[in-house]
């Protein structure tokens, strides 16, 4: 899912930075205004959690690597804007410190995982759980579906971005990248993300002292 440097051309990288800059600026403004002081450490811990989850990745011929993300989980817990920041932070640490690369590709990676995955997954969760009680099983299922769809969308976007580089930067076109990446997500990693998210939401329902699930 993670696109290292060298996969995307400079124009593509620049384009996604340009798309993400206002999103990041908006996210930090919204979060500063709305995030409760109590949730601030959760932002960092959510990012650390996602980092650990992302460590377990495998390469997908024709695409990049595939792994679970945990983006929708953090969005359900903290809201989509804080989740956008948390996942971006994870990607920055991977890019700069872990040496996974992706400094130039940070904009694209963030667009896929910190924006598209987070927002699509979160709003699918909201839609499916529409007006159900916070304690209902429907919420758990909604969380799973949201995470699954979010992760798959991120995989598809990754494949499209790589596929469009064919010939110049990537040895593969859409024809190879799309089925490989989407397939890995639909068959394996989407489920990992879904199970992870649903399990944690279920766990949270059984405890009242933990962070509230965001009202919807």
């Amino acid at each position: 899912m993670h696109i290292p440097d060298g996969y995307l051309g400079p124009a593509t990288c620049g384009f996604f930075y340009a798309v993400m800059l206002p999103i990041w600026a908006l996210a930090s403004r919204i979060v500063k205004k709305t995030l409760k002081a109590k949730q601030v450490p959760m932002l960092a811990i959510g990012a650390a959690f996602s980092f650990i989850v992302m460590l377990f990745d495998i390469p997908i011929p024709g695409g990049t690597t595939a792994h679970a993300i945990g983006a929708v989980l953090i969005a359900i817990l903290l809201g989509p804007w804080p989740a956008c920041i948390a996942i971006t932070v994870t990607l920055v640490i991977q890019a700069f410190l872990f040496g996974d690369g992706g400094i130039l590709a940070l904009g694209a990676n963030s667009f896929n995982m910190a924006f598209a995955d987070v927002f699509a997954g979160y709003y699918i969760y909201r839609l499916v759980s529409y007006r159900s009680k916070p304690q209902s099983i429907r919420r758990v299922i909604a969380a799973g579906i949201g995470a699954y769809m979010g992760a798959t969308l991120a995989a598809i976007l990754t494949a499209v971005e790589i596929g469009l580089q064919k010939g110049k930067y990537s040895p593969y076109g859409l024809k190879e990248a799309l089925p490989a990446m989407a397939g890995a997500s639909i068959l394996v990693f989407g489920w990992v993300d879904a199970l992870l998210t649903a399990a944690v939401v279920k766990y949270l329902q059984s405890r009242k002292d933990t962070l509230e699930i965001q009202p919807s």
Binding site: W24, A25, S28, V31, K32, V40, P41, L43, A44, I45, A47, A48, F49, F51, I52, I85, A86, T88, V89, T90, V92, I93, L97
Partner: peptide, 19 residues
Amino acid sequence: PQVFVMTLGMCYRYIFLFA
């Protein structure tokens, strides 16, 4: 922005603990 910098610092700190 400061919220990113602070989250980055704390995240880095706690990744190790999680590991």
